[in-house]
């Protein structure tokens, strides 16, 4: 039982990363009918931004340039790192949209897919060129002793990671459901073409969507860096693909679906690795996903959309 609960705790942490990244894929797919294949690399960029922001803040406070209250220094650095990096990475996402995708609006789907892959490669290789091949180790922002609860090992890291992820997802859910900007995103998910007739600029909503997704990816990158402190330029590739699959399983444009599917993928992976050789992990995880998609080709909760593609 303790072993089982331990896996649940581990799965919640892993699922948090997938869920946060999957949301970015899902929103862009929902609102713009576009797979942003660069999103995994935007997650990587977010992790690096987080690395530089947190290292910078720690260095500033170490030399006394920035006076942070003792006792909560690291917590404060974490919060500041999250806020600053999410803002910076949303700018990265908006640039990807503005430079990479906007000129291709109305172009065949394949052009956008190729562009996404290219932007991903550019982000990876420019990271390599600018920062060199050495890996970076993320500062430990959430230290603390492991707590043992009924034989289950829980670290403060895990609690914070899962809590921050859930909080961000809930925030996004409220944004999409309750604000007029979220309403415009849902409208665009349903009928992209007719949105300008409401006086709403498609370009603005596209930027917003990319910005939000990239901000969440930055949060995922920071939390990932806290959990697995080694960053490298290709960290977003496989991770991004997996989150992309979670987004598809969750259903186009669905915040709840992407969140649930992200956690589901985390659970499958952790439990397969717990009971079977870990080399089987991806094989089995993706086989289960394929079975799910066979029975629910549109995923769990896809947003409905109009079949009319032109006015």
């Amino acid at each position: 039982m303790a072993f089982f609960m331990q896996q649940v705790v581990n799965a919640l942490q892993r699922g948090s990363f997938y869920a946060l990244i999957a949301l970015g894929y899902s929103m862009v797919y929902g609102v713009l009918m576009l797979f942003n294949f660069a999103h995994g690399d935007v997650f990587m960029v977010g992790a690096y931004i987080g690395f530089f922001v947190s290292s910078g803040l720690l260095a500033l406070s170490a030399v006394g340039f920035l006076s942070l209250p003792t006792g909560v220094t690291l917590a404060l650095v974490l919060v500041l790192t999250l806020i600053i990096s999410m803002l910076l990475n949303s700018v990265v996402g908006m640039l990807v949209e503005r430079i990479g995708y906007r000129p291709l609006r109305g172009a065949p789907r394949a052009s956008a897919a190729i562009t996404g892959l290219m932007i991903g490669i550019i982000l990876e290789t420019s990271n390599l060129a600018l920062l060199g091949a050495q890996r970076r180790s993320f500062p430990d922002l959430i230290p603390g002793e492991t707590i043992h609860v009924l034989g289950v090992n829980i670290t403060p890291k895990k609690i914070v990671i899962v809590a921050v992820s859930l909080l961000l997802m809930f925030g996004l859910h409220l944004f999409v459901r309750r604000t007029k900007w979220g309403m415009a995103m849902r409208a665009m998910a349903y009928d992209y073409v007719v949105v300008p007739l409401m006086g709403v600029s498609i370009n603005t909503i596209a930027l917003l969507t990319f910005g939000l997704g990239s901000a969440l990816a930055a949060a995922a990158g920071i939390l990932y860096g806290v959990a697995y402190p080694v960053l490298d330029p290709y960290m977003g590739v496989l991770f991004g693909w997996k989150a992309f699959v979670a987004a598809i399983v969750g259903g186009r444009g669905s915040v709840l679906g992407a969140g649930l599917a992200g956690f589901l993928l985390g659970f499958i992976e952790i439990f397969v690795a717990a009971f079977l050789p870990s080399t089987m992990r991806d094989l089995i995880a993706f086989s289960i996903i394929l079975v799910i998609l066979t029975f629910r080709p549109h995923g769990f909760f896809g947003e409905p959309y109009s079949a009319q593609l032109r006015l």
């Binding site: 009928d191 007719v194 947003e303 409905p304 109009s306 009319q308």
Partner: peptide, 8 residues
């Protein structure tokens, strides 16, 4: 065809 947002 009116093109309402049926999901809203």
């Amino acid at each position: 065809g009116r093109r309402l947002f049926a999901n809203l």
